[in-house]
Amino acid sequence: MSRIQTLFDRLRSEGRTALIPFITAGDPTPELTLELMHRMVAAGADLIELGVPFSDPIADGPVIQRATERALAQGVSLRDVLGIVRRFRETDDQTPVVLMGYLNPIEVMGNVAFAEAASEAGMDGALIVDVPPEESHELVDAIKAQGLDLVYLLAPTSDAARIEAIAEVASGFVYYVSVKGVTGAGHLDVDEVKSKLDAIRARIELPVGVGFGIRDAATAAQVAQVADAVIVGSAIVGRIEALAQEGQAERIPAVIGDFLSELRVAIDQTNDGGQHG
């Protein structure tokens, strides 16, 4: 059984919602990324989404774009990201790590070479933002051959046919994008999210994480009422940026750790309130 499935099985039996932070690997430095990953786990993160920097991130808003640019300015490559995962695994063999990125850097490495290297590094799954289920079957096969999970996005505009097409190929969990827009955009409407999650769950058995637009403990708690996982990206990356710009990069792990602890408490209180469906 994969680490991701083990995680969600356990959380489901405990009636708890997963907390999934997203950070861009190498932002502001690869060393800090590793330290931050451990710190986030200590603060209550259940799974880590690690962004692979790409020069043209069309699905990302300005906050994550700038994180990508900071990482690229240091020459952080896909191989470097896998190197970070490998080092993370030296002391943590429990917490799943899902790589989130775009197709081109993977193809340049080679589909099979990537899947093998990712598996060997201890990565658990991949969400390749610009690969819909219709494209790149070779890559999908290569990733699955290594026993890695393939996570897909679902959008407010995904109709029944698309949800079913994604159900065919997705594993681990699916990631519901709660607002129309790019990462970090908009305000989410929990009732709208709930009705869409019902439509998704009617067609997909996997756990459903909700992301885009979760900025604080209050929104995290709201989403925890309806989702299997709360995914937080721009709110974390924005804090990293502010500290890096103030020349206080060394405080990043502590500040992000405190932020995640707040979210953890809010999510757990919601779960304990018995509102999780």
Binding site: I58, D130, P132, E134, E135, Y152, L154, K180, G181
Partner: peptide, 20 residues
Amino acid sequence: ARGHFGPYGGMFVPETLMHP
């Protein structure tokens, strides 16, 4: 039918763009 010219073209976009 899905926009391929031999191996080129296609629709390599995030799910958010599939509907539009």
